[in-house]
Design a protein around this nucleic acid. Structure first.
Length: 420
DNA sequence: TCTGGGGTCCTAGGACCC
DNA sequence: TCTGGGGTCCTAGGACCC
């Protein structure tokens, strides 16, 4: 049996942990640049705030309904996520952290244990230790556990735990789940399946596997097995190394100056390099892109990207920034209002398997030592203390974050002081 | 004024090789 | 009329997830 533990309205719940006055109040969290809604408390959902709606369209509603609105504070959410995962790990070593707010727990080794009661205990403990409410679904496969989790959230809010084991229980769950609500069925597949008369998950498992394979690829076939109770999605104990690493952002305002964009992409390039070093990999290709705001129909539109092949795979901030800026020079055209840019490093290989170049003139051993010190200082004393000149100091490209909450758990000056 | 960011997997089709 | 067969690699694009 597998459990899926999912934090309820995670970002909104995080904002509440250190602001108890927000309890039972509608809370909304916005995406980067305070763009659109990405998390809502139950109260906000009840007021009709939809996921993904641009914030400017809701400004009146926020005010009228007294909704508490926050910019996203990923430092806080990441920190609380770690606490949740650590708490979950104390219940079983077989844990797969699936996303910032979800984890699968493998209960196969828990023989002679009442798993439902165990689930209730897990939920209570996370609430007590971290202050985050979770829902738990328990079932024979990951996909069924996801489905049971939805049920726990919707149908048994009070307990927050739902378990299916017997074939009757599974059949009930399948029949009660609409096809579009199945994990792995997005809007396109939903449309296709509805056209073929498939309304629920129960209808889906009656389908001819060959038809599924042809129309929904092997991914659909895997899904079919999972719903039939045959585990077909692999268990990832440790996160596999990333094959692509991307850092991209919309700017806080439109930019038309090449210098500003160069500052931005240099910062993104550095972030990519830091992520590469963290997973002990190097990239062979640096991809840079810039684009205008597609929503502004009055503006001339421009999108361009470029791939740059590195002579030797690298994870040096120094080198990656340098090639990124070369790429930018090739694709940048003046006379446009730019909204977004990004750097993607690709063709990633383990650090120890880098093919050295015969004509390489870059002093790699020296640079490696420099990067080690760079990371050490930034890890210990703040992530942007040591910087490259190309990263600049002007903040014109920076995110708009007008409603940011404090970093209660990660910044000393934001930690609450308790007076006696 | 204002519309997120970061990933993965799969397939089709073209280029190229013998 | 008729135009090999089998393979690899790469890219673009679609679909999905949180």
């Amino acid at each position: 049996m597998i459990a899926l533990v999912d934090c309820n309205n995670f970002y909104a719940s995080c904002e509440r942990v250190f602001s108890p006055s927000l309890k039972n109040k509608p809370v909304v969290v916005l995406s980067n640049n305070d763009g659109c809604v990405i998390a809502r408390s139950n109260e906000a959902k009840e007021l009709g705030v939809e996921m993904g709606t641009p914030a400017f369209m809701l400004a009146d509603k926020f005010e009228k309904e007294k909704i508490y609105v926050f910019s996203s504070n990923y430092t806080l959410y990441g920190s609380l996520s770690n606490r949740v995962m650590k708490t979950l790990s104390s219940f079983t070593p077989d844990i797969e952290v699936y996303s910032i707010d979800e984890a699968f727990l493998d209960f196969t080794r828990m023989v002679d244990k009442n798993l439902f009661t165990y689930g209730v205990q897990i939920k209570k403990t996370v609430q007590q230790y971290v202050g985050i409410p979770v829902s738990i679904g328990i079932a024979p496969t990951k996909t069924l556990a996801k489905m049971a989790n939805r049920f726990a959230k919707k149908k048994c809010k009070n307990i927050g735990v739902y378990m299916v084991e017997s074939s009757t229980e599974i059949a009930e769950l399948l029949a009660a789940t609409e096809i579009g609500d199945v994990w792995g069925i997005g809007s396109q597949h939903k449309r296709k399946l509805l056209l073929n008369g498939i309304r629920t998950a129960a209808d889906f498992i009656q389908m001819n596997p060959e038809w599924v394979r042809k129309n929904l690829t092997v991914v659909g076939q895997r899904l079919l097995n999972e719903l039939k109770g045959v585990p077909s999605i692999t268990w990832e104990t440790a996160p596999p190394p990333k094959k692509v690493i991307c850092t991209s952002r919309s700017f806080g305002q439109l930019l038309c100056n090449k210098e500003d964009i160069a500052n931005a992409v240099a910062n993104y390039a550095n972030k990519c390099a830091v992520k590469l070093r963290k997973q002990r990999s190097c990239a062979n290709i640096v991809h840079v892109f810039i684009q205008t705001n597609t929503h502004r129909t009055q503006d001339k539109q421009y999108y361009r990207s470029i791939n740059i092949q590195l002579p030797v795979a690298s994870n040096s901030s120094n080198e990656i920034i340098c090639y990124t800026l070369k790429g930018l020079s090739k694709i940048y055209r003046s006379g446009y209002n730019y909204k977004k840019a990004g750097v993607i490093v690709m063709d990633i290989v383990p650090e120890k398997q880098v093919q050295f170049g015969l004509f390489d003139t870059f002093n790699r051993s020296r640079d490696k030592k420099l990067m080690e010190s760079f990371d050490q200082i930034n890890t210990n004393y703040g992530s942007d203390l040591v910087r490259f000149a190309a990263q600049g100091y002007n903040k014109r490209w920076k995110l708009k974050q007008e409603r940011l909450s404090p970093c209660y758990t990660t910044r000393l000056k934001d930690v609450y002081v308790i007076r006696n």
